[in-house]
Design a binder for these strands. Structure first.
Lengths: 227, 227
DNA sequence: CGTGGCCTTGATAAAGTTCAAGAGCCGTGG
DNA sequence: CCACGGCTCTTGAACTTTATCAAGGCCACG
């Protein structure tokens, strides 16, 4: 069945025996979201978690004044919204689709039953949560210890690594969203891109960015680097 | 045996059957740390995790210029340093004792073996990591969406809640360390405490702080409040 | 009684945000 | 086919917040 195929290709469920995949298929609920649709909101009660099958989802915190801080952007195969499954019941942040997305929902109680049967699922989930803690640690370091140029430099180098070292990058999110991800606002991001261009670190043309000076960016990305 | 008693009183191991506690006692390594002693450093390889038995430990990120951001302060019964056990191998932050502390160390491989035998340990650990994610989410919200007065107000209200609503608080960490926890520096913290005093939100005398205007603090603590 | 640590206070500087205006782009509809 | 409206992005100037640098006070401890 198609569902089983998708479930089997989720890293979280990698290497599970066929019968367990079938159990998972029994409890999954398939959901579709259009672009910019709310999936859950900070403070809502959660009674299960989600996995992106296609499309993209952002997890974020919003302030009253309308500023947002993006915590994650998740694509196919990535789970999200697990926290209420294991601790308390409320989502600590909000989730929204960034494009048309297909999402699998796994209800809490049935899923916990499966975990207790399979230490492998538990270990995989522990790995997922641990990686998320690493990501948050970096985000906190960026917000607290680095200035915006340093955060941007770190992000560009991250894209650079994703692209196996290619210095020709293409932003796959809008600059406004990138600002939210970096903990700043579009105006500031725009100015800093301009400054990086002027000082010869990058070349920039809309969403295409070319890294000219890797060393210079690495220097900036270290907490303490100055532009 | 004394070790077993301590292990049994760790929330992470709450409700485990006696034989499992004995297994844990077999693999534990007891360590003592004096005040301000390094336990592990950001980037080190980790081959196990820790539980505070007595004393206190801070987990933090440091920048080259010497600024630090405290991520957690852990006391008796609280585990730390679990991330390398489940994801990759490196600690994403550093740990240091804040006072003389007794710490139990559980080596990775033996512990993973126990987890696979006991879904209860796994579930408890999932809960621990999930709560940590909640804490990080709040920290990120504070750093990104609130200004320092808002962060301080939120912290005072947190102490207020810990003390079951008492408005007479006593800081149990130095103001310098509190500044690190709030993502700022001592000078700024000092000024803001002064301003809160002057505007009648609190009364402050060294480490003793009395909340005068709960509503006012709550208003500040919401992302968007102004002092 | 002096010395070092911690905290406070002041003056100054830097970084980032806000507000405002305008440019470029794209899809829609006349 | 072009004009319009709406969006994102950019740029400038003023302002706010926070950090930095420097100095002085307070207190505990030897």
């Amino acid at each position: 069945m198609e569902i089983i195929y998708h479930i089997g290709s989720i890293p979280l469920f990698k290497g599970l025996p066929r019968p367990l995949l079938e159990d998972l298929a029994m409890i999954v609920v398939v959901q579709m979201f259009k672009k910019r649709q709310n999936i859950f909101t900070d403070g809502d009660d959660g009674n299960g978690f989600y996995v992106v099958i296609s499309g993209r989802v952002k997890i974020f915190k919003a302030s009253l004044e309308g500023k947002e801080q993006i915590l994650h952007i998740f694509g196919p195969g990535e789970p999200f919204g697990e926290v209420p499954v294991f601790a308390g019941l409320k989502f600590p942040a909000s989730a929204e689709s960034m494009e048309e997305s297909r999402i699998f929902f796994f209800p809490r109680d049935a899923f916990i039953g499966l975990i207790k049967k399979s230490p492998d699922i538990a270990m995989n989930m522990l790995a997922v949560l641990s990686r998320r803690l690493i990501r948050f640690t970096q985000l906190i370091e960026n917000l607290s210890l680095k200035e915006v140029p340093g955060r941007l430099a770190a992000y560009l180098l991250y894209l650079n690594k994703l692209n196996k070292g290619s210095q020709d990058l293409e932003l796959d999110i809008s600059k406004g969203q990138l600002a939210s991800l970096l903990g700043t606002i579009p105006e500031t991001l725009s100015r800093i891109l301009g400054r990086m261009h002027k000082t010869g670190l990058i070349e920039s043309d809309g969403p295409r960015i070319k890294i000219v000076d890797v060393k210079g960016l690495e220097n900036l990305a270290v907490a303490g680097g100055r532009l």
